[in-house]
Nucleic acid binder design. Structure first.
Lengths: 142, 142
DNA sequence: ATAATAAAAGATAATTTTGTCTTTAATTAT
DNA sequence: ATAATTAAAGACAAAATTATCTTTTATTAT
């Protein structure tokens, strides 16, 4: 597993929210968790976290819900960093505290470009594009 | 984090064991956990798992301990699969059950080559080579 | 103002991962 | 045979992750 389960939920939720936003609707925790197949309240927590980090927006009360203001400017990497942090892109693959470019572990040079590619791909893909991709293929979010 | 903490311990332990094997010695749980900076008994469990999967060998009793028979034929990928399984190389990055080559998620094609590279690099590096690398750089395993 | 709606927040719990301690089994040396 | 050594196994516990339920707060509509 490259991303944590929470993070997978976060990504799928963001796509669903963006999809709804595009349709001019806000959407709630229940609809979201139903759409992406995640536990309702747990999903709420994750969305809270995303909202605090300004990845998504939320409004309370009737006709409130979650929405995403600028899906073109939110990238997968933003969601991943918000939920899982940036360990995936930085911490030593064999867990050596001292590992760095100047004092590399034996896998450092081999893993470095792979990490960079991961970061690149996750930085390239905006939520907006993800929605388009799903539209094309007849989307499924679970 | 690409690998679990347990798996990081496993990799470091395997290197230390191979190093000792090369020096004609078997080595015990206490020495290993001291060398790699891991909790003693927990390390025992991990080594047990590696032994069951034939990644390393062990002998009980006086002058017993852990050793590695064929460090040239044991690759990082073997350790990783033994401890973490193969989810890293296969499971959908956004957690979609239905994701596959024929019904790909929006990141499928982008992640695929990265996964392959991960698998390639982990499959290329034998424990024997890891030991040589550490010998070169003045090894540190914690 | 009041009621209804929906996210935020808090409390609690289950599960998984990580870590500790004790007992058992295998092997060796005396 | 007995004692010493060392991994294996089992029981237990702490911490992190994942999940559930309840209460509070903000907002809207009546």
């Amino acid at each position: 597993m490259i991303l944590s389960k929470s993070c997978e939920y976060a990504v799928r939720a963001a796509i669903y929210i963006a999809l709804k936003t595009q349709q001019g609707e806000k959407t709630g925790i229940i609809a979201i968790s139903e759409a992406i197949g995640s536990p309702t309240h747990f999903t709420g927590k994750i969305l809270q976290a995303l909202a605090r980090k300004k990845v998504i927006s939320s409004i309370k009360g009737p006709h409130g819900g979650f929405f995403i203001e600028n899906p073109k400017d939110i990238y997968l990497v933003d969601i991943i960093k918000a939920i899982d942090g940036s360990g995936l892109f930085s911490s030593c693959v064999m867990g050596l505290k001292t590992c760095s470019d100047t004092k590399p572990c034996p896998m450092h040079e081999q893993i470095k470009p792979i990490r960079t590619q991961l970061l690149t791909e996750f930085s390239k893909k905006s939520v907006d594009e993800l929605v388009k991709d799903f539209d094309k293929t007849g989307y499924f979010l679970r």
